[in-house]
Computed example of a mutant assay.
Amino acid sequence: MALAGRKVLVTGGTRGLGYATARRLAQEGCDLALCARDPASVNKAADELRTCYGATVHAASLDVRDETALNAFVQRSVEVLGRADALVACAGGAVGGGFFDATARDWEETYRLNVGHSAQALRSAAPHLARTRGSAVLVASVSGWKPAPPAQYAAAKAAQIHLAASLARELGPHGIRVNAVSPGSTLVPGKGWDRLRREEPEAYQAFQREFPMGELMAPEDVAAVIAFLLSDQARAVNGANIPVDGGQNAPSAYGY
């Protein structure tokens, strides 16, 4: 994809989909800056990428909801890597439970974790991306455009999709492309769907019927699309939301 030599910042880039994305970009010859909350996973991911792919990797442990820490990560990443060609906002998740259990604080924190961090990371990186005519990918979710609980997560992911479309128009004149990807339910070892497969095999088998080809996504499936969107092959793709869900129907194992 002619990504060799690109300098890419990835939030939430040390486990699951984020690490699969970092690994794919390293395979393509990119140098990387990664951040996540857990210092051990940050260091492990950075060491593996350096050892396996020879990538230059700047790694930092931080909570992406901390605006000061996130800004510092972006600026330090540019100092270490020399420039910024791309940003992947992959950190995210849900805080709180169902509608009657989730508090106002749960809604606020879910928004900050998904939408707020994406906007702030891109705001901080934008002057650097403008110099390289770079691009950004915001990792949303199938839950952002197909209904699924918890509502605070679905609403935040829908906002991320709209954020990408809005910023594509606003940042386009600066030479920056912004797109979203919406992964479907992704089978990550040790995570929720993997636990369902092991602990409730009948429920998992029933859930597989929500996919026309009978399989959940692999993190590498999504990482490949992200790599494409960051490449010059996607120079005409801007403001889009790309579903990577295998045609998934309900985003939940328990239906709509």
Results as ranks from 00 to 15, higher is better:
V142N: 00
P39E: 03
A234R: 05
S141F: 00
E199Q: 10
T11R: 03
A125F: 05
H162F: 08
G13F: 02
A165M: 15
E109V: 13
E220N: 12
F228N: 00
A84I: 03
A158H: 14
A59W: 00
V57I: 07
L167R: 05
Q75L: 12
G190E: 14
T186F: 01
E170A: 13
V8Q: 00
Y111N: 07
H162E: 11
V137T: 13
G192D: 13
A69C: 09
A20N: 12
A140T: 02
A46N: 03
G97W: 03
G192T: 07
S231D: 02
T14P: 05
L167Q: 02
V139S: 02
R65C: 11
A253W: 04
A250Y: 10
T56N: 09
L70V: 07
K7R: 15
G98C: 09
D38I: 11
L187R: 04
Y19E: 03
P243T: 14
R15K: 15
F207A: 01
S252I: 06
S182R: 00
G255I: 12
Y111G: 00
R123M: 11
V57W: 00
G5D: 09
G144W: 07
S124Q: 10
E210W: 03
K157P: 06
A72N: 14
E199F: 04
A119C: 10
A40G: 12
S231T: 01
A165W: 14
A203S: 14
F211L: 02
Y254G: 12
D31A: 05
V225L: 09
G82D: 08
H174A: 13
R131Q: 10
L113V: 08
E170Y: 08
C35Y: 08
N249T: 13
L163M: 14
P219S: 14
S252C: 06
D66I: 15
W193K: 03
L87H: 02
P183H: 05
L129K: 02
I226G: 01
K44I: 06
I176C: 10
Y153Q: 01
A45S: 01
P147A: 10
E108Q: 15
M217G: 12
E199T: 09
P39V: 06
V139N: 07
A158P: 08
S118R: 08
G175Y: 06
T103Q: 05
P150A: 09
L230D: 06
A148D: 09
Y254F: 15
S182D: 05
K146W: 10
R50P: 04
A46Q: 00
A22F: 07
N238M: 12
E67D: 07
L229H: 11
Y256D: 13
N249L: 15
G144Y: 08
E28N: 06
G96W: 00
I176W: 06
Q160M: 15
